[in-house]
Design a protein around this nucleic acid. Structure first.
Lengths: 253, 253
DNA sequence: GACTCGGCTTCCGCTCAACGGAAGACCAGG
DNA sequence: CCTGGTCTTCCGTTGAGCGGAAGCCGAGTC
C-alpha cells in the first residue's frame, strides 16, 4: 500500500501504447503492475466516464472523452491549430512530409504530420516521441533550449540509429552551433537512412522557441537545401501568428 | 463524502474547456465543485505526471502527456490517421473546409478540420462537439445509426440555431430518409447561415458507419451539389482503407 | 510603507473508500 | 466433458484521503 489512487489511475491509462492500443483486463493488470480486482474497479469507473472504452471483444482502449480533454492542451492541438495553415501551405508547395513537434523533457513529441502519397515513409507518429539529437526538429529544439538541457543531453549517451547518427558530444555540439548560426537544421539519415529533414524554429511571443517544424524528404534528394527558404518562412509565419514580432532585428537569443 | 478519487480526478480534468483552457486553482475548485485543498492535492499529482501543466503565472492547463494518451484513442487519431490522405486530397481539390467527425452518445465529435485561408469560417473545433440534427456529418451519422438513437433524438427537443434549422421530428425524419436514399447529406444554413456542408459516410469493415466527412462551403455557393461526387469518393476511399469491401453491391443496411 | 484581500499552501485528526485475495462464473479450446 | 485462463463479485480490514482552518504570499490601494 502507500500509493495514491490518482497514481494508480495514471498507471492504468499509461499502460496503453501505440504498439498496444487495445488491452484485455489481464494485460492492463500486468502492464500497470496492479492486482486484477483493483484494475477492474478503476477501469470500470474510467469506462463509465468515457476515458476508456470497452470493445465488443472485451478489450479496453483509450476513449474519445480522454482524447477530447487531451485536445484542450494548449501545447498540443492548441499550438497545432495556429500552425495548420502554414503546414498546409508548406505541404501544398513541397508535396513532402511536413511535421510539427515540441520539446517535452528530453524528447521531441510530434503534434502533426502531413504526408503525401508520394512522400518518403517516415516513422514519426502523431503523439509519438523521438530523441532530440537524431531528428531535425529535435536539433532545432535543443539548439535553442536552456543550457542545462543541452548539457544534460550532451552528457548522456547518444543512441545510434543508423551508421550516420551523431553519437559524440563534439559532433552534436558542432551541429547545434551550426543550427543556431543558420537558423535551420538539416538532419540527414540520422534516425533512418532514407530520410533527410529540414527544420526551423517556431517562436513564442517573447522569442523563445516553443516548437519546430520540418519537411522530410528522401535522403537522395539532390537539392534538399532548396527547401530551407520555405521551411524558414513557414516557421516565421507560425511565430507571427503566435505573437512574435516579425522583425529580423528582434531575433535574439 | 462517498465519491471516489477516480471520479474526482475526472471532474478536475473535465473542468477545462475550449473557452477556458487555462484555470487557476480557485477556478478549478469552483468548476470541479471540490474543496480547494482537495483540488490542490489532486492537481499536484496530475501535474507531476504531466496530465496537467502549471504555467509561469500559476494557472493550470491540460498537459502534453494527457494529449499523448488521448492520441492513442483508436476512435480519435487512429481513425483520423487512416482518413488523412483522403481528407488532404479533398482539401486540395476543393480548397474548402474539410471535416471528419464521429458519433459519441447523441452528439458529433470533430476529429479533424482542414481549413484553407479563403474558405468560409466554420465554428467547428477539433475535439469539439455539435448536435446531430444541425450538421451535415451529424445527419449522416444519425441516418445510419441504431434505430434507438434515432428515436431518442427525434423524441427530444431539436434546438434551433438559425431560421433555417430543422426543428420538427417530421422534418428531421424526412431529411434522414433522404440521406439514406442519396448516401450523402446536404446541410444548408442549419447551424450557421453562411455555411453549407456536403457530408458522406465512412464505413467500418462490417459496413457500419463509423465516421462521416464533409466539405463546408459558403451557403451562396451556386452549385454545391458539384461537391457530392468527390465527397462520396473520399468517403469510399477511407472506408476501403478501414477494410470495407469496395463493391457497391455490398452497401446494405 | 502599511494594510487589505484573494489566492495558494500546509497541516492533521478522523473516517470510510479502497484494498486485493479468494471464490465463483464464464467461455474458448482440446 | 474437461481444463485453463479471464473476468466478476465479495467483504473484513485499514490507511489514504478528506477538507476546514491557519498561515503564507503577493498584488493592489491608500
Amino acid at each position: 500500500m502507500g500509493e495514491s489512487v490518482t497514481a494508480r489511475v495514471l498507471r492504468v491509462i499509461a499502460a496503453f501504447s501505440a504498439e498496444r492500443p487495445e488491452l484485455t483486463l489481464t494485460e492492463l493488470s500486468r502492464r500497470a503492475a496492479l492486482p486484477l480486482s483493483t484494475v477492474h474497479r478503476l477501469v470500470g469507473e474510467l469506462a463509465e466516464w468515457g476515458a476508456l472504452e470497452r470493445a465488443a471483444d472485451g478489450r479496453y482502449r483509450v476513449g474519445l472523452r480522454l482524447w477530447e480533454v487531451g485536445a484542450l492542451a494548449p501545447r498540443g492541438l492548441g499550438l497545432r491549430e495556429s500552425a495548420m495553415p502554414f503546414l498546409e501551405d508548406l505541404y501544398a508547395v513541397t508535396k513532402q512530409n511536413v511535421q510539427l513537434a515540441v520539446l517535452d523533457g528530453s524528447e521531441v513529441v510530434y503534434l502533426e504530420r502531413l504526408s503525401g502519397r508520394g512522400a518518403v515513409n517516415v516513422i514519426t507518429r502523431v503523439g509519438g516521441r523521438l530523441p532530440l539529437h537524431a531528428t531535425g526538429v529535435g536539433l532545432v529544439l535543443l539548439a535553442f533550449a536552456a543550457p542545462e538541457l543541452q548539457q544534460q543531453i550532451l552528457a548522456a549517451p547518444l543512441k545510434r540509429y543508423t551508421a550516420k547518427t551523431m553519437c559524440t558530444p563534439d559532433e552534436l555540439r558542432r551541429a547545434l552551433a551550426e543550427v543556431r548560426r543558420a537558423g535551420v537544421a538539416v538532419s540527414d539519415g540520422q534516425i533512418e537512412l532514407v530520410a533527410l529533414s529540414v527544420a526551423a524554429p517556431v517562436r513564442g511571443p517573447r522569442g523563445d522557441v516553443v516548437a519546430a517544424l520540418s519537411v522530410v524528404v528522401p535522403s537522395e534528394t539532390s537539392d534538399a537545401m532548396a527547401y530551407v527558404p520555405v521551411v524558414r518562412a513557414a516557421g516565421r509565419g507560425i511565430s507571427r501568428t503566435l505573437g512574435f514580432p516579425d522583425s529580423p532585428s528582434a531575433v535574439r537569443r
